[in-house]
Design a protein around this nucleic acid. Structure first.
Length: 457
RNA sequence: GUCCCCAUAGUCUAGUGGUUAGGACAUGGCCCUCUCAAGGCUAAGACACGGGUUCGAGUCCCGUUGGGGACGCCA
């Protein structure tokens, strides 16, 4: 039997990295088994659902490189389907109307907590039928529902712990625990891979499958991502939206790789291409404990992907991410800049660094880091710099590394100074700072006129 | 509070009864070096606790502790 999975976000917010991870797991699982990966937009909550969020979620998925099969399924367009199933449950006696007021229910809940009991509905309307209000699903009076979770193993929940939950609101619109079942069954979903926070919903849903005479899928509940304080990851821990990571200069490859490895592993391997992941991934090897997000490791991966990226691709990426001003969009593709780029990539943690490292080379005028200038451009070194300028000027071209090095060596000997001093001073004058790729290499790559100009002190 | 789940270093993890408990990030040191990175080498650092089962337990069972999650006419 072929595998069919789905990712089912609700467009009530941006794509959270936790959500992104479950999407990735679904995606990888489907691709690994050569099955289908569907997308379902859970927009039954009309009040809170917004098109803008939906767009952002779709964009984030695309950015991460997840393509889904077929067209997205919108729950808001399937009310008739849900209603026909609700009617079935009503007719078969698996559901009933309830007109208890919110106040009544709240009071009941508080009382249950105070009496140290599980807060479940009293079943008042189940025992005294009414014919209006919300519709509740009847949970069997005794027994338990068990299922085998691919990640967590066997899970069993007693029916006394589950309340007769609402499957349709007073206005007739269906709620989550009911629509998931109808849709998963209708879409032929074979495996549900979702967040750990749904474990307690699973028995409710299995009971609905049974009441409807449908076959439940297998379930794989992936543990949560936690913040550094081990609480559920939220905004106060820092960035949680996929788009925030994009804006901060992370590569989708890095985020993707990081998120997969958070809670899943394959021997000692840390770095995976998507192809390797498709080949190696399976739900059975997802860990069963929650994982703390570690930005340092994400940064390490990001740096790795940045430095291993082909300069041509990096150039395109810098442009498409809007990091390159219009005036340099063509210039950045020139051969000299392209030669410098890998050296800059090697030193970059984020996309922004990769562009910034190029700026001194692209711009005509640079600004000096005052501290670096003060430290290295000393009165003693100035005459040597002038001399350096004179010597470089004599060369017909600066692109011979050996010739450039020879000039520096000669100056060091002549003035009995350290290579460090002259190299750092030259670096400050040419790049504006005391941190850059090798200064000799830079000189050989740079326009001669520009080099001479900057060496004028 | 009730129920469900989880438990190897600061963090992510390998480990499926016999290992000097392996790898990665972060941290310290060394090497390389014109700066900064990168890279190489190296150091320190873990089986939460208590009972069992077993010749033998990180690994199996029970309990304790700790942590997380769920308890909506949200999804």
């Amino acid at each position: 039997m072929s595998v069919i999975v789905r990712f089912a976000p609700s467009p009530t917010g941006y794509l959270h990295i936790g959500g992104a991870r479950t999407a990735i797991f679904n995606y990888l699982y489907a691709r690994h088994h050569k099955g289908k990966f569907y997308l379902r937009i859970e927009d039954t909550d009309i009040e809170r659902s917004e098109k803008q969020y939906e767009d952002e979620i779709l964009e984030s998925m695309q950015w991460l490189g997840m393509d889904y099969d077929g067209d997205p399924v919108y729950q808001s367009k399937r009310t008739d389907l849900y209603k026909s199933y609700i009617k079935k449950l009503l007719e078969s006696g698996h559901a009933y109307f309830c007109n208890c007021s919110k106040e009544e229910l709240d009071a009941e809940r508080e009382r249950a907590m105070a009496e140290k009991r599980k807060a479940v509905y009293s079943k008042k309307c189940r025992n005294n039928p009414v014919n209006e209000g919300v519709i509740r699903f009847k949970i069997p009076e005794s027994g338990a529902t068990k299922f085998v979770d691919t990640i967590l193993g066997e899970i069993s929940i007693n029916h006394e712990e589950i309340e007769d939950f609402v499957i349709a609101r007073a206005d007739g619109s269906p709620t989550y625990n009911f629509t998931v079942v109808v849709d998963d069954a209708d879409m032929g979903i074979t495996t549900v891979i979702r967040g750990d926070d749904h474990v307690n919903n699973t028995p409710k849903q299995i009971l609905i499958y049974q009441a409807l005479g449908l076959m439940p899928p297998t379930f794989a509940h992936v543990p949560m991502i936690l913040g550094s304080d081990k609480k559920k990851l939220s905004k106060r821990h820092g960035a949680t939206a996929v788009t925030q990571y994009r804006k901060a200069g992370y590569l989708p490859e890095a985020l993707f790789n990081y998120l997969v490895r958070l809670g899943w592993s394959h021997g000692d391997q840390e770095i995976f291409t998507k192809e390797e992941l498709v080949k190696a991934f399976d739900t059975g090897s997802i860990g069963s404990s929650a994982a703390v997000l570690n930005v340092e490791k994400l940064n390490w991966l990001n740096a790795h992907y940045i430095k291993s990226m082909d300069p041509k691709d990096m150039t395109e990426r810098l442009i498409s991410e809007g990091l390159v001003p219009d005036e340099f969009k063509n210039r950045i593709k020139d051969a000299d800049v392209q030669r410098l780029l890998p050296m800059v990539q090697e030193r970059s943690k984020f996309l922004g660094d990769a562009y910034k490292g190029l700026e001194f080379f692209l711009k005509d005028k640079i600004e000096y880091d005052p501290k670096a200038y003060e430290k290295y451009i000393t009165p003693e070194i100035k005459p040597v710099l002038s001399e350096l300028k004179g010597e470089l000027e004599k060369l017909s071209s600066l692109d011979d590394l050996k010739a450039v090095e020879a000039i520096f060596t000669a100056l060091i000997e002549k003035h009995n100074i350290n290579l460090k001093n002259i190299a750092q001073a030259t670096r400050v004058l040419i790049t504006g700072t005391d941190i850059s790729p090798g200064i000799f290499e830079i000189i050989t790559m740079m326009d001669k006129k520009k080099v001479l100009e900057r060496l004028s002190v």
